[in-house]
Amino acid sequence: MDWLQVVVLAVVQGLTEFLPISSSAHLILVPVLTEWQDQGLAFDVALHIGSLTAVVVYFRHELWGMLTSSLSALRGRGVDREAMLALWVVLATLPVCAVGFVLHDVIEGYMRSTLIIALSLIGFGVLLGYADWKQRGTRSEYHLRLRDVVVIGLAQALALIPGTSRSGITITAALMVGMSREGAARFSFLLSIPVIVLAGGLETLGLIQQPQGIDWSVLIFGALLSGVSAYLCIHFFLRLIKRLGMQPFVLYRVIFGVWLLWFFHA
């Protein structure tokens, strides 16, 4: 890998992991459009570590509260809102784990085409735009109910379809059940933590089974750049949606999807 490829892939991963525009779509298409060779599993793991570090650092206070409250609840000292939030994150992660385990080979083998990516970008983008326009809830991530978590968790399983966007579909579902824009985004980012851990774990297993030479300087730089860009993305995204909502991202998705249809299938 040359350094230009490292920089582009790291920044793309860091930005698109948390924006509702589909990281998988961009990471699949970058090598197609540039004709770069596959970056390899080791680099993928490094990028995931960078993104994971960013979201953990950004939400460190919330995560610490969730951890300590959960431990207190297990000791029989009562369940507060932080412990409930931790439970909701776990429950909302179960559907994507189950579907991913059962359909992983199908998704990897048959659904990573530019046609599916383009249609997913457009279709789920329009759905996000509708949810943002129609629903103006006020509830935060601390005011979820079980049925809300079930809806959001089932929606997150759809993110296994390339082009859907994990953050996009979970924010869409959260808006539809009455959460505020910021609350929906924050819960979506918290949900990303177990998903990134699981995805990175699977890639690590694949890396162990396929030993290869490792360029540590490339991996460290890629992880650092991915982490910095992801942290800045989370920070500015949460500020931007208060004023502009989701419509700029909807417009980007539709334009991107239409361009893919024209470029690859016209």
Score class of each variant (00 low, 15 high):
236 F>T: 13
48 H>V: 05
14 G>M: 10
155 A>D: 13
91 L>Q: 03
169 I>R: 08
119 L>R: 08
227 G>M: 10
232 L>E: 06
171 I>P: 02
56 V>F: 00
171 I>W: 02
60 R>H: 14
172 T>R: 12
181 R>A: 06
15 L>I: 15
126 V>C: 08
144 L>F: 03
160 L>D: 00
121 L>G: 02
229 S>C: 09
28 I>L: 14
68 T>V: 15
203 E>G: 02
253 R>F: 02
62 E>S: 14
221 F>H: 03
221 F>W: 10
227 G>N: 12
209 Q>K: 15
108 E>Y: 00
107 I>S: 04
243 R>Y: 05
75 R>K: 14
12 V>C: 08
129 G>S: 03
76 G>E: 06
97 C>V: 15
156 Q>G: 07
56 V>Y: 01
144 L>K: 02
10 A>F: 05
239 R>E: 13
105 D>P: 01
199 A>P: 02
182 E>K: 15
247 Q>N: 13
249 F>H: 09
10 A>P: 06
260 L>P: 03
132 D>G: 06
145 R>S: 09
178 G>I: 12
93 T>P: 01
9 L>T: 13
165 S>V: 08
218 V>A: 05
150 V>M: 10
151 V>H: 07
83 A>P: 04
30 V>F: 00
246 M>T: 11
139 R>F: 06
190 L>G: 04
113 S>F: 02
234 I>G: 03
3 W>F: 09
170 T>G: 01
153 G>H: 11
152 I>S: 05
31 P>I: 04
38 D>C: 01
254 V>F: 05
198 L>M: 13
177 V>H: 06
154 L>I: 15
264 F>K: 12
241 I>R: 08
223 A>R: 06
4 L>P: 00
148 D>F: 08
188 S>M: 07
210 Q>L: 03
112 R>P: 05
81 R>S: 13
130 Y>T: 03
220 I>D: 02
222 G>I: 11
11 V>P: 04
175 L>M: 10
214 I>F: 02
164 T>W: 01
114 T>S: 11
94 L>H: 03
92 A>K: 07
192 S>A: 15
202 L>D: 02
218 V>R: 12
9 L>F: 10
163 G>L: 07
87 L>E: 04
201 G>A: 09
236 F>A: 03
50 G>W: 13
18 F>G: 04
62 E>P: 00
188 S>N: 06
48 H>E: 11
66 M>N: 10
102 V>H: 04
236 F>I: 10
27 L>Y: 01
168 G>E: 06
134 K>T: 13
6 V>S: 00
170 T>M: 00
128 L>G: 10
29 L>I: 10
186 R>H: 12
191 L>T: 09
57 V>L: 14
